[in-house]
Simulated assay, not measured.
Amino acid sequence: MIVRLPPLAPGLRVGLYGGSFNPAHAGHRHVSRLALRRLALDRVWWLVSPGNPLKDRSHLPEAARRAEGARAMARDPRIAVTDFEAALGVRYTRETLAWLTERHPEVRFVWIMGADSLASFHRWRGWREIAERMPFAVIDRPGYTLAAMASPAARALARARIDEAAAATLAGRAPPAWVFLHGPRSGLSSTALRAAAKPSVFRA
Rank of each mutant, 00 (worst) to 15 (best):
Arg185Ala: 04
Met149Gln: 15
Arg123Ile: 01
Ala167Thr: 11
Val110Leu: 06
Ser117Thr: 05
Glu95Pro: 03
Ala137His: 05
Ala167Gly: 13
Arg123Asn: 03
Leu100Tyr: 07
Ile112Glu: 05
Val110Arg: 11
Thr145Asp: 07
Ala156Pro: 01
Pro184Trp: 00
Pro105Tyr: 11
Ser151Arg: 12
Ala137Lys: 06
Leu181Gly: 09
Thr145Ala: 12
Trp178Pro: 05
His182Leu: 10
Thr145Val: 10
Gly172Val: 09
Met113Gly: 00
Ser120Cys: 03
Ser117Ala: 14
Trp127Lys: 12
Tyr144Trp: 14
Tyr144Pro: 01
Phe121Lys: 07
His182Asp: 10
Pro142His: 05
His122Leu: 02
Ala98His: 12
Ala174Asn: 07
Asp140Gln: 14
Val107Met: 13
Ala171Glu: 11
Pro152Gln: 01
Ile130Gly: 01
His122Glu: 08
Phe136Asn: 03
His104Ile: 04
Ala156Arg: 09
Arg159Asn: 02
Ile130Ala: 04
Ile112Asn: 06
Glu95Ile: 03
Ala165Tyr: 07
Thr96Cys: 10
Ala174Met: 05
Arg161Cys: 12
Met149Leu: 15
Asp116Cys: 13
Ala153Ile: 06
Val179Cys: 08
Val138Ala: 07
Glu132Met: 04
Pro152Ser: 04
Leu146Asp: 10
His104Tyr: 14
Thr169Trp: 01
Gly172Cys: 07
Gly183Asp: 13
Leu157Met: 07
Ala177Ile: 06
Thr101Ser: 11
Val110Gly: 08
Trp124Gly: 09
Ala166Glu: 14
Glu164Gly: 11
Phe180Lys: 10
Ile130Gln: 07
Thr101Tyr: 04
Leu146Tyr: 02
Glu95Thr: 01
Trp111Gly: 06
Glu164Arg: 14
Trp127Asn: 07
Arg185Thr: 06
Arg103Tyr: 04
Arg103Cys: 05
Ala119Gly: 12
Val110Asp: 02
Phe136Arg: 05
Leu146Ala: 14
Ala153Gly: 03
Trp124His: 13
Pro175Ile: 10
Met113Arg: 04
Asp163Ala: 15
Ala153Gln: 06
Asp116Ala: 14
Glu164Met: 15
Ala131Gln: 12
Arg125Thr: 10
Asp116Asn: 12
Pro176Asp: 03
Glu164Thr: 13
Gly172Glu: 13
Met149Asn: 14
Ala148Gly: 07
Met134Phe: 04
Ala147Gln: 15
Leu118Tyr: 00
Val179Phe: 03
Thr96Arg: 11
Ala98Pro: 10
Leu181Val: 13
Tyr144Gly: 02
Ala158Trp: 00
Pro184Ile: 02
Ala153Phe: 02
Pro135Met: 08
Pro176Lys: 06
Glu129Gln: 12
Trp124Tyr: 14
Phe121Asn: 06
Pro105Cys: 09
Arg141Asp: 00
Val179Asp: 03
Leu181Phe: 14
Ala167Glu: 06
Ala131Lys: 11
Pro152Gly: 05
Gly172Lys: 13
His182Thr: 15
Arg173Asn: 02
Val110Gln: 10
